[in-house]
């Protein structure tokens, strides 16, 4: 699969981020400059250039839906061998150490996990397994629960710029259009010089240009979630965290949103971490699925999902088997939501 450059010249080969929570501190170090120098010229976007690049990239990437075979060929040059770890050849870029420390001092050392470059990692677990807390910690919204209580319990000032996140709640501002919602992250936080075409390029790549001038209330839930995801992507983060995106969707909309996630991942080639309770959807999108236990912050196992991509429309053979295996893993957790 050829790497796709954003039209505004950012690299898509992600900078490495190393995330090590512990000792009450929580840092995201981004050594992108040393490992992956930015490629391409700095942004010299004009409308025509951007739209041309979008159209070429879209034809490269997403051929007409009535021709799924070519789509598979385009997306799936690195289709994994059956049974192989699909992310085997990828280097770990994000080292999660003691993420359980976010949940409380007694949970220190609980979840330790390497997230690999360009990987789609899902963490499934029942309610109360600490998914949201982990996400908020990784996003910089919360510090680890400190051993020493007191004044430093206040939340972190802001997340590292290389992490984008999408919360479980609907967070699009209803008084802004889709395009204005995507402008917002580019205009705050000390950023002044914004190329408006940056947003349109992203919207075009994700197929959202038609709804760019609509308000969130006019969109179906699934499209709203997709817009939220693109807002998480608009600052070009190296790691994208997604919390429970399937909440409030019926079965077919879940499938469709999972397809969307797969498509966005194929287009942007970012590292995704998705936290959900929906095992079927997790298996649909993930390269690996981590199973969390009901008692907060214990990682039971990590299951490789070696299924061919794209997994849209019909379930690929073998999906049921993986779902079955994950369900067995959390067999002693009756609270887990299963939709299959």
């Amino acid at each position: 699969m050829p790497k796709i450059a954003y039209p505004w010249g950012h690299c898509v080969k992600w900078p490495a981020a190393i995330i090590v929570p512990g000792n009450g501190s929580f840092t995201v170090s981004d050594d992108s400059e040393t490992r992956h120098p930015r490629v391409g010229p700095p942004c010299t976007c004009r409308r025509e250039t951007v739209l041309n690049q979008i159209s070429t990239q879209l034809t490269d990437l997403a051929p007409a839906p009535e021709n799924p075979a070519s789509q598979i060929a385009a997306w799936d040059e690195e289709s994994p061998r059956p049974g192989a770890d699909p992310a085997e050849h990828l280097v770990p870029v994000i080292l999660l150490r003691d993420v359980g420390a976010l949940l409380g001092p007694d949970r220190a050392g609980a979840v330790t996990l390497d997230v690999r470059e360009d990987e789609f990692l899902c963490l499934v677990g029942p309610a109360g397994s600490g998914k949201t807390t982990m996400l908020r910690g990784l996003a910089g919204l919360e510090r680890p629960a400190p051993a020493a209580r007191g004044r430093n319990r206040r939340p972190a000032a802001g997340h590292a710029p290389s992490v984008g996140f999408m919360l479980a709640e609907s967070t699009l501002f209803p008084w802004l259009t889709v395009r204005q919602n995507l402008w917002l992250p580019l205009r705050v936080g000390g950023r002044r010089k914004v190329d408006p075409w940056q947003v349109d390029a992203l919207l075009g790549m994700l197929g959202l240009l038609e709804v760019a001038n609509l308000f969130p209330a006019d969109l179906p839930v699934r499209t709203r979630r997709l817009v939220e995801l693109s807002r998480a992507l608009v600052r070009d983060p190296s790691l994208v965290l997604i919390d429970e995106p399937f909440r409030g969707l019926d079965f077919s909309a879940r499938r469709a949103l999972a397809d969307d996630l797969e498509r966005v991942r194929a287009i942007t080639r970012k590292t995704f971490m998705l936290f959900t309770r929906d095992i079927t959807a997790a298996v649909h999108v993930a390269d690996r699925v981590g199973v969390l236990s009901a008692d907060a912050g214990r990682l039971l196992d990590v299951v490789n999902v070696a299924l061919p991509r794209p997994r849209r429309a019909a379930s690929p053979p073998g999906q049921a088997g993986v779902v079955q295996r994950i369900m067995e893993l959390c067999g002693d957790q009756p609270r887990i939501a299963v939709t299959c």
Binding site: R136, G140, L141, G158, H159, G164, L167, L184, V188, R235
Partner: peptide, 9 residues
């Protein structure tokens, strides 16, 4: 939280 994530003042 979202605004904090954007490190907005």
């Amino acid at each position: 939280d979202v605004m904090r994530g954007f490190s907005a003042s």
